[in-house]
Nucleic acid binder design. Structure first.
Length: 458
RNA sequence: GGCGUGGUGGCAGAGUGGUCUAAUGCCGCGGAUUGCAAAUCCGUCGUCUCGCGGGUUCGAAUCCCGCCCACGCCUCCA
């Protein structure tokens, strides 16, 4: 059986992964807060853990892997969005959830086995908070329930911080009812305007961290295999989850492997609204960047390194995918992916190496193995292939392009090269890639295609 | 201030003790093709080197120490 090695944040080392139960390999990944479209940075962990999901399914069998990714549908950001837009919360979360699934599907991400919504697990959260209170890890203060960080001698073990260090330069919220500045909210009161649920501490709503502890417990048990997310979640979110779950279930492991992906940058800089380089997955798709290309670009960088999204990489990715799609057209996939590709992914998700193996297979002309191996990575699937097939233009523009090319062919036949080249230059200027073959001209639209540029050419 | 990640050939990006004078892709270069191009295909290229300075070792890009730099997290935005 393929040996899987993964870098475990808990130990900061690459370790051999052995599931607790090979018939039921369990992974939990923190999902989105649903109040707006997912931006490109949100998509990176999705693709990273989708790749891990695919690996686990390959090694242990699709029926033996349980992957949970939650939706946070109760949160102050959502409340704020509802207030400013005047729309009901349920409408916002439902719409955003649907968008998220659409956009991630466009990246070739498989749907997790379970996608629990936080609001459906309020009872479990309340129960866990009661356990934490009973065990003396939490206290009630002014309608809030807070986790008492001092009750956990291991607090900080995941993120490598000590409570003292954190307090030193901390920018934590200083609330008067906190015993310790690092204590965090498990439950907070809601006013009449805010969503709330009845609880032993009055009508209120959960803090951010408790949902993942409660939902993972319900769906995966108190000791599961892998817990993942972006490294921005390492502290405080995951640290707090770990503290809560450990206190509620002393002696249980909670999660044995913690995996964190590095952040995404855009053209060398952090993606942020203030820098003006902030964009969503949908923005990119609407600009004509295919989801498959986005996925390929993500796979090009190891998940533990910062990934720089650049236009140039997207263009290179598109070229490689076009080539491979042409090569595998009409080819039946081999029964299994190439062992070297699986081995690369099994080695701490070394997707750059896996892509290099794909290039090797292409160079060797093994189209069927290339296809099976690429699909193992979520590439060259039928679902993601429309962009490469259709040429990418709407029917009206397509007809116009065909007409122009026919005109050009006639001009070439008449050896009126000035006219032929003028037409060609116009098409190129409009972003159409014209490809002359021995059987006549073919075309497809490039990333800068602008149908308006076709008008008035003749 | 605390914590973390990383600095590899023109670019991207693997490699983490010997098979590395460093995978793979891109770019460049040569050729095929073309009326000329583009696209495509074939071939070819990266000699004193892996941020800098020490050290360990028979041997280091790979381990240790120090330094410099970049980026990120601890902040609404992942």
């Amino acid at each position: 059986m393929t040996e899987i090695r993964l870098t475990n944040t808990l130990t900061r080392r690459k370790e051999t992964f052995t599931p607790i139960d090979p018939d039921r390999v369990r992974m939990y990944v923190c999902g989105p807060t649903v109040y707006d479209r997912a931006h490109l940075g949100n998509a990176r962990p999705v693709v990273v853990f989708d790749t891990l999901f695919r690996l686990l399914r390959q090694v242990y069998g699709p029926r033996h892997v349980v992957y949970v990714r939650n939706f946070t549908d109760v949160d102050d950001k959502i409340i704020a969005r509802a207030r400013e837009s005047g729309r009901p919360i349920a409408q916002i979360t439902a719409e955003t959830t649907a968008w998220y699934l659409e956009d991630m599907a466009a990246l070739g991400a498989l749907e997790p086995t379970h996608m629990p919504r936080a609001t459906e697990y309020i009872a479990e959260m309340v129960a866990m908070i009661e356990t934490l209170l009973a065990r003396g890890c939490a206290y009630v203060a002014e309608g809030h329930v807070l986790f008492d960080v001092s009750s956990d001698p291991d607090y900080g073990i995941l993120s490598g911080r000590s409570v003292e260090d954190m307090i030193a330069g901390a920018r934590v919220e200083i609330a008067p009812y906190k015993r310790n500045p690092m204590d965090f909210v498990l439950w907070k009161p809601s006013d009449a305007e805010q969503p709330g649920w009845d609880s032993p501490w009055g009508r209120g709503r959960p803090g951010w961290h408790i949902e993942c502890s409660a939902m993972s417990l319900k769906l995966l048990g108190d000791c599961f295999d892998i817990h993942g997310g972006g490294n921005d979640l390492m502290f405080p979110h995951h640290e707090n989850e770990l503290a809560q779950s450990s206190c509620a279930h002393p002696g249980a492991c909670f999660a044995r492997f913690w995996l964190h992906n590095e952040m995404l940058q855009v053209e060398g800089k952090k993606m942020s609204k203030s820098l003006g380089n902030f964009f969503t997955v949908r923005d990119l798709l609407d600009q004509g960047v295919p989801g498959e290309v986005i996925r390929f670009v993500f796979l090009l960088t190891h998940y533990r390194k910062p990934m720089d999204w650049t236009r140039r990489k997207a263009d290179e990715a598109a070229a490689a995918l076009r080539r491979w799609r042409r090569m595998t057209e009409g080819v039946a996939p081999a029964p299994a992916p190439d062992p070297a590709v699986v081995a690369a992914v099994a080695d701490d998700l070394n997707t750059p190496r896996a892509l290099a193996e794909l290039h090797r297979l292409a160079a060797e002309g093994r189209a069927d193995v290339l296809l099976a191996s690429a699909r193992f990575l979520g590439l060259l699937t039928e679902a993601l292939g429309d962009w490469a097939r259709a040429g990418g233009a709407d029917p009206e523009a397509a007809a116009r392009i065909d007409r122009l090319l026919a005109e050009r062919a006639a001009a070439r036949k008449a050896r009126d090269f000035a006219r032929a080249d003028a037409i060609r230059d116009a098409l190129v200027a409009a972003g159409v890639i014209v490809k002359d073959t021995p059987d006549g001209a073919e075309w497809e639209v490039g990333p800068d295609f602008d149908p308006a540029g076709l008008e008035g050419v003749l």
